[in-house]
């Protein structure tokens, strides 16, 4: 009989994690869901919905300009400019956000319509194919016509 292999550090960590799985299940699920939403999304493979989601991410204009700086006086200056221009940026940002949201809604309709068209084109293609096969079968059944 061979002695059991001692668990590796990673196995011990996994086992410890498993023993805490029931400690805060609701909160852990919230974490997984919230972090999952921020994971990388592939928009290069022609996924129109993913591309539209990117437009949506950028449609909300943030007018809360960051003012952090390594130099305290520069941070203060940025804060002052921010306060002085807040009304202007807010007014402008609101309109750009509305434009962005409208584009997203329009894009969503276009993608949806395109998908519906693709689906109906696919169905029409199958119908045409079936008709062509039927004609071919009928032609085989007809006696050969003498040449005029």
């Amino acid at each position: 009989m061979t002695a059991a292999r001692p668990p590796t550090l990673n196995e011990e960590i996994l086992s410890a994690a498993g023993s805490h799985a029931g400690d805060a299940p609701g909160y852990l699920e919230r974490i997984r869901s919230a972090t999952g939403r921020l994971a990388a999304r592939d928009t290069s493979a022609g996924d129109a919905w993913a591309a539209l989601a990117t437009v949506e991410d950028h449609a909300r204009v943030d007018v809360d300009v960051p003012i952090a700086s390594r130099r305290r006086e520069l941070s203060w200056l940025k804060g002052l400019v921010k306060r002085l221009t807040a009304w202007y940026l807010g007014y402008l940002g609101h309109q750009v956000t509305l434009l962005g949201e409208s584009v997203v809604r329009f894009g969503g309709l276009l993608v949806q319509r395109t998908e519906e068209l693709e689906e109906s084109t696919g169905r029409a293609h199958a119908d045409i194919q079936a008709l062509a096969e039927r004609i071919e079968r009928l032609e085989h059944r007809l006696p050969a016509q003498p040449a005029p």
Partner: peptide, 11 residues
Amino acid sequence: DPLVVASAVDR
């Protein structure tokens, strides 16, 4: 997974 990383840090 958040729980696995948390357990590793605790260890």
